[in-house]
Amino acid sequence: MKLLIILILTEPIFNMSNSQVSSNSNEIFKLTKKANDFSLNGHINKDANQIISVYSENTILLPPGEKEPIKGLEAIKKFYLKGFEYGSSLKITTENISYTVINNSHANEVGKYYIVYQPENSNKQIELNGYMLITWKKNSKGEWKIEYDMWH
């Protein structure tokens, strides 16, 4: 049974030609990177609407320390607005470790993040770093949106 599930999940990967993957992967990477950079600027600007503009209606957010996944745009927006109460990010950088396109409709991004954070009413900066996993999905309008966002 496990083998059957694995074959069903990986079948789209094996059916893509190498030329299709390489030419489309670069274009898809550029589109998702542009969306991700726009969202990261929303963190710096404390603009929750800008952040969630790259999320799909059904996004599931899996941040560290939360007891339950955060589902849907309104809940995700509230999560970020609450976070803004603690201060602002001075700098956010990310570095990709792996980027995989599946069937020209999904992409998985694995990377590292580094954040320099300034808490409200404090002169001390906090540095956060770790790993992230983002799953992108192309919607019916042809836009690439985040379906799953996890970091630790």
Rank of each mutant, 00 (worst) to 15 (best):
L4G: 04
Y55S: 09
E66G: 00
S56T: 09
L61G: 03
N108R: 03
S23C: 03
I115G: 07
S98G: 00
Y86P: 05
L4C: 03
I6N: 07
G83I: 07
I70C: 03
I97V: 14
N45E: 15
Y113M: 13
A107D: 06
S89F: 13
I28Y: 04
E57F: 03
N36Y: 15
K46Q: 15
L7T: 02
N18F: 12
E109H: 12
K71Q: 06
I92H: 09
L73Y: 01
K91G: 05
G65C: 08
L3W: 11
Q118W: 06
E66V: 08
S17M: 02
N36K: 12
S89A: 14
K91S: 10
H106Q: 11
S39E: 13
F38H: 15
I76F: 04
E57C: 02
E74N: 15
L73V: 09
I102D: 07
E95V: 14
K78D: 07
I44S: 09
L31S: 11
G72R: 05
N104G: 10
Q50S: 11
T93V: 15
N45L: 14
L9F: 14
L62C: 07
Q50W: 03
D47I: 02
N121I: 02
K112A: 11
Y80Q: 05
Y99E: 11
K34F: 08
Q50L: 10
I92A: 02
E120G: 01
N36S: 13
G42L: 08
V21D: 01
N121Y: 08
T94L: 12
E85W: 02
G87A: 11
N58L: 07
Y113Q: 14
K30H: 09
K71F: 01
N45H: 07
K91Y: 12
K33A: 10
N49C: 00
T100G: 00
N26V: 12
S23K: 05
S25P: 04
T93E: 15
I92R: 14
L7W: 11
A48L: 00
M16D: 06
G42D: 08
I28E: 05
G83E: 06
I44A: 09
P12Q: 05
L61S: 01
V54P: 02
I28P: 04
G83Q: 09
V116H: 09
N18D: 05
T93K: 15
I115H: 06
T32N: 01
S19K: 08
I13P: 00
Y55L: 14
K34G: 03
I70E: 02
T94Y: 12
S23V: 10
L62T: 03
L7H: 09
H43I: 05
V21K: 04
I44Q: 05
I102Q: 06
T100H: 09
S23A: 04
K30L: 12
N58K: 12
L90Q: 14
N24D: 11
N103G: 06
F79D: 06
G65I: 06
I8M: 08
T100Q: 15
F29Q: 10
S98V: 12
V110R: 13
S19E: 13
P63D: 07
L40Y: 12
P64F: 11
S89P: 02
